[in-house]
């Protein structure tokens, strides 16, 4: 799944999310293709991240969610951060970025 066109503000959120690593795969959640959508509203001071996991019941689920909230809160302390899991479409390895695909080949 490709992220819909992001504004510069939302791209900033996406870059921050690159700090969140899936501890089992050792790759950040953006290059892994887990982030499905970002909404950043400067007026209401809200950030909503829609993301998935490599599989439902992934043991690292809440760790990844906590990390995502934590890094976003550190970068955007004035914003209300919401991270929500979505399960459709189901994640497939093809959703990873080029960097992600390279990581799979070498790790």
């Amino acid at each position: 799944m490709t992220l819909t066109i992001l504004s510069e503000d939302e791209k900033e959120v996406l870059n921050v999310l690159k700090d969140v690593i899936d501890p089992e795969i050792e790759l950040n959640i953006v290059d892994l293709g887990l982030v499905y959508g970002i909404q950043r509203n400067s007026k209401t001071k809200g950030i909503i991240v829609s993301m998935t996991l490599t599989s439902i019941g992934c043991p690292m689920g809440d760790v990844i969610m906590d990390d995502a909230k934590s890094v976003l809160f550190n970068h955007f302390p004035d914003y209300k951060i919401t991270v929500q899991f979505v399960w459709t479409p189901k994640w497939t390895p093809e959703m990873a970025t080029e960097e992600g695909q390279l990581h799979f080949e070498t790790h």
């Binding site: 501890p23 089992e24 050792e26 890094v71």
Partner: peptide
């Protein structure tokens, strides 16, 4: 390692130099 990691280390944000289960 995952069980111990979840218990001891998960509260450390991943962008700091935190150790992984492996």
């Amino acid at each position: 390692p995952f069980i111990i990691w979840l218990s001891n280390y998960k509260s450390t944000p991943s962008h700091s130099n935190k150790i992984l289960p492996k």
